[in-house]
Amino acid sequence: MKAITMNASMRALVKSILGAMLGLFLGLMICWFTGESPIKILKILFQSAFGSGYDFGMTLFYTAPLLLTGLAVAIPFKSGLFNIGAEGQLTMGALAASAVAVVAPNVQSPVLAIALAVVFAFVGGGIWGAIPGFLKAKRGSHEVITTIMLNFIAAGVSAYFTLYVLKDPNSAQAETLLLPSVYHLKAFECFNGAPMGPLIFWLLALVVFLYFWMWHSVWGYELKAVGENEKAAGVYGISKQKIWMSSMFLAGGVAGLVGIIEVLGNSHRFKIGFSADYGFVGIAVALVARGNILGIIPSALLFGILQKGAGSLDLETDKVTRDLSYIIQGLIILGVAAEGLWTRKRK
């Protein structure tokens, strides 16, 4: 009996891998047509991702935010909501994390400082996520529209705070004051300057924890019930309003933690436009993972590799540019989304 469920999730996994490989294959075919050797491209991508300690560190640095934004899309999706707003949520999370030094400049203990920043980032992003959740629950506003709109508002609000409230007066850039060193996260020495340290393990632990939480907690069950059949859930006393608000708060909070990676781990301040569209790539990450929380780990790594490799394609080839990386990303999404290719024959 167990075998049936294993088969279903195994099949989903196989479908995702096949889809991703098909996308990769098509992408490599494209560069073959342009006159570049696909083998060479693969080699460049691999070298760029894993070639040195620094390269691997940078790959993880690109992967880490995608773990979080992938979660931010996948979790509400289980309750029937499509969160396009991870970009705005992570912006607000990062802004809140950078404001922590203004609120508490004299913290001595690094543990306390970082815990404080984590709470700020989580709550900042969480509130930004909870707003569309609230509007959906109380007014029935469609979350796709409200989350997109809130992305723009987040950009505006963060720009205002960066330029007028938290501005670093000594910088010509649009960036906030540098955080005191007690807030800085350590990076691994072996990464030779790539800004990623023990944080990556905490993030992986978060993914595993949420996987466990979604499957075993009552809240996770109720979330699934609402996503599957909100009317039936209501008949049995599960409030879809509560579920929508809480799942969007959690999603926004998780997205907000991108602020920890960036502000505490990398630039130690908030810079306008720091995000490489992590919020939107997160949608692709969740899609390729097929909503499976653990699947987000390999999925985010795949997209992290492609993001990291994009620059090297520019430098090391004559005929293709970084755009090939985006083409491959797009083709992978298509390959995974083209479910019909794999299922039609079965019917």
Binding site: Y221, K224, A225, E228
Partner: peptide
């Protein structure tokens, strides 16, 4: 529409 989660198993 009111009783079941069609894409979940009997346990769920």
């Amino acid at each position: 529409s009111e009783g079941l989660l069609l894409q979940q198993d009997m346990t769920e």
